[in-house]
Design a protein around this nucleic acid. Sequence first.
DNA 1: TAGATAATTAGATGATAATCTAAATAAAAT
DNA 2: ATTTTATTTAGATTATCATCTAATTATCTA
Lengths: 96, 96
Amino acid sequence: MQETPKQESLFTAIADMQRRKILALLKQGEMSVAEIKANFEFSGATLSHHLKILKQAELVRVRRQGQQRIYTLNLSVAEELMLLMNQLLRKRESNE
Amino acid sequence: MQETPKQESLFTAIADMQRRKILALLKQGEMSVAEIKANFEFSGATLSHHLKILKQAELVRVRRQGQQRIYTLNLSVAEELMLLMNQLLRKRESNE
DNA sequence: TAGATAATTAGATGATAATCTAAATAAAAT
DNA sequence: ATTTTATTTAGATTATCATCTAATTATCTA
């Protein structure tokens, strides 16, 4: 089992605590950037950076709503990551 | 749900591709450092570094056998990490 | 159209992490 | 006891990453 760049980007995405916190927030439901931002200390630029990495990993999706951008958790990719983790850590269930 | 330093160390441990590869190897069974090393390009010092991080996260255990050190996957901590991932990514099952 | 608001992008900086070589430790074999 | 083998530790280097401020883009409102 070789790891693809896409899979790699998933592990990178969850490596950072702030990004995991963002994911945890989005699990409760979709949020605008400003709403997400209210939960953190760092700058908007930094938040944007983290969101970009989550987007690249496709763990989140964005849509526009006026001048706001609404972020949602991408559940199917989240499941995909769970599957990867399972393959990595648990007793063999279709490896190789 | 606040994240503890110990949990943090788990995410850090799996953030690196080489370390994930080490875990995947150990899933097949215990291995000495030399056996693990045979699967990689980098130096022994680098391998030692990665093993240290996996040890600190308690994802692996070591025992001595003569001049070799035998590494094994710590299944209970692996399960703990799966649980964390589940809480992070899946629909709420006892959060907060 | 001008100004305000929301968010991203550019570019710089400091911190963290992966890697290397060389040296150290410890057990085994001669 | 000396040498060899297995692994770790120390210290340095380089690459990656999180963060910042300032500038930019895009939308909305007066």
